[in-house]
């Protein structure tokens, strides 16, 4: 089932990706092809199979809740495109 341009635009908005019209058309075709290919999965009866999210036997690994050294605020802000007063600076969120 091929995707529509509207669906492509909806997914792009969910993923916060600005796409050109050419990209939208290309992704509509390419994603449709991949999804068509993946549709064969639905032919398998998996009603009795549980899903695998991780192959490891580990579940909810905990550690002692103790304070440990961590990176300084200056170091963590050093890569920011904009920083001010010890914070990351972004465009206004509220009016």
């Amino acid at each position: 089932m091929p995707l529509t341009i509207e669906e492509v635009q909806h997914i792009a908005e969910l993923a916060k990706l600005e796409l050109t019209e050419a990209e939208q058309a290309r992704f509509r075709d390419q994603l449709s092809a991949v999804l068509d290919y993946a549709a064969s999965l639905r032919a398998l009866d998996t009603s009795a199979i549980s899903p695998t999210a991780t192959v490891l036997p580990l579940r909810t690994v905990l550690r002692d809740d103790t304070v440990q050294p961590s990176l300084s605020r200056e170091v963590l802000l050093a890569n920011a495109p904009e920083a001010e007063a010890g914070c990351f600076r972004v465009p206004a969120v509220l009016e």
């Binding site: 997914i11 999804l35 899903p51």
Partner: peptide, 23 residues
Amino acid sequence: IMLGTYALSTGYYDAYYLQAQKV
């Protein structure tokens, strides 16, 4: 990112993502 977002989105999660985890 688009493919993954689609597979996790409402209405498609069970058909794609959950089914893939089962297989």
